[in-house]
Design a protein around this nucleic acid. Structure first.
Lengths: 233, 233
DNA sequence: TTTCTTAAGAGAGCACCGCTCTCGTTTACA
DNA sequence: TGTAAACGAGAGCGGTGCTCTCTTAAGAAA
């Protein structure tokens, strides 16, 4: 099937892609704060004002990189999950965690852009970022749902019931992430999700300090196991 | 006892304090990225170059705010812990968690500065920040240590032993945070620590999305309880 | 094939930034 | 009281995001 795009549209798409690529390389080498429209323009061999034909503002350029980053992370997580047997629920959870960490360590600047402090003054436009931004939690929910459906989730039975308002939140969330699991499991999943990124953030953003852990791999594996326990996998 | 400081030293300390105060207010209203030496100078009623008599660089100004923030957070955490009975170990843990969250919600910009992405190009000088930066984990370790010493920690006995290299890390960490608890508890503590900040970061830095949770309080309480469980409190 | 619309890039310019340097002035100490 | 140090002002440099105007060239329409 012949593409119906005009040459102009194709050139435009190519330039936009070049801008994203250059932006990502600058992000990786200099960090988000040092990302400048003028530098990207220079490397593209164009004057700075020309960039504004493609990107509304510097924040818009950041959004481009945010979406790009979420997509790459989502792809890697999906690929990692696909390599594990569907009935190995714990294995799938661990695979997701490892994939997130591996990607974060490889792309710390992009990770910081996505999961670190919001860039000052910059507000990611929800309509462009929420879709790609929910892929990791989406993958996690699928694991827990499959595990529960297979009767493979073991949770303590002395946990108090989920309070009313929170239960209402859970119900609403299930419109986007359908699930038949008990509310308690969903809440535990939210904890595991936040905790997973907490662990990765501490390592990638340097909260542990430079010389605290030499065996971060072993630490992270242990943390993953504990989180798998918490969610009953 | 009369103070031995000269008027000049006192004036200098006062000016430094003013700079910190103005810096914090700008941080709160504009965010870390928008924090500018020139703006601080304007508000101080002084020309921008004068600031450099007190602060080596913009990064140095950020370090001032980082230390200030760590101290304030540490103070509030300590105060919160002190209000709980020493033998209520779980209550002390929960108090720490709540204090961290309360402070983070009140000072989101400072929280982002401390626990979000590192400001691009800026590297916090360890010799000035690690001390104040370890107060929260210090308080947590004290809770677990007290609980263990009181025989109030209940951990599952089927947990595999901590791997060798990680055990060596734990041993080294205990030179700074003395403890007689089993290695497994320490590792669980590290998870709880990272997870606590993961939960707070998700909420404060906006990872949950704007409309996902209406009952974030209840969610956080539940997360704290689960983390207390994980550490055997 | 010729005309016309429009997208793209160049360049100047504005206001701001961090930071440096120099130059008077004030202050504290010997 | 003399002097060295601290301090603030001011100019200036190279950088930033962003806007505006102008010219050119490419695609679409006739």
């Amino acid at each position: 099937m012949a593409d119906t795009t005009t040459p102009r549209e194709r050139a435009r798409a190519q330039t936009l892609q070049d801008i994203t690529r250059i932006g990502r390389s600058h992000l990786a080498t200099e960090g988000a704060a040092a990302l400048s429209v003028r530098a990207v323009a220079r490397e593209l061999g164009v004057v700075s004002s020309a960039i504004y034909r493609y990107v509304r503002s510097r924040d818009d350029l950041l959004t481009l990189l945010v979406v790009d980053g979420y997509d790459e992370l989502g792809d890697e997580v999906d690929a990692a999950v696909a390599k594990v047997a569907v009935d190995d629920h714990r294995g799938r959870f661990v695979a997701i965690g490892r994939a997130v960490r591996r990607w974060a360590l490889r792309e710390p600047a992009t990770y910081a852009l996505l999961f670190g402090s919001p860039v000052p003054g910059y507000q990611a436009p929800g309509e462009r970022t929420t879709g790609p931004g929910t892929r990791v939690i989406g993958a996690l929910v699928r694991v827990w749902e499959d595990a529960y459906a297979a009767g493979a989730v073991r949770l303590p039975d002395d946990t108090p019931p989920v309070p009313r308002k929170l239960a209402a939140d859970v119900k609403r969330i299930r419109r986007e992430f359908p699930s038949s699991a008990p509310e308690d499991l969903t809440v535990r999943g939210v904890l595991a999700w936040a905790a997973l990124f907490g662990c990765v953030s501490f390592e990638v953003l340097g909260q542990y300090g430079p010389d605290t852990f030499t065996a971060v791999d072993q630490l992270f594996e242990r943390q993953l196991q504990l989180l798998a326990d918490t969610t009953g996998l």
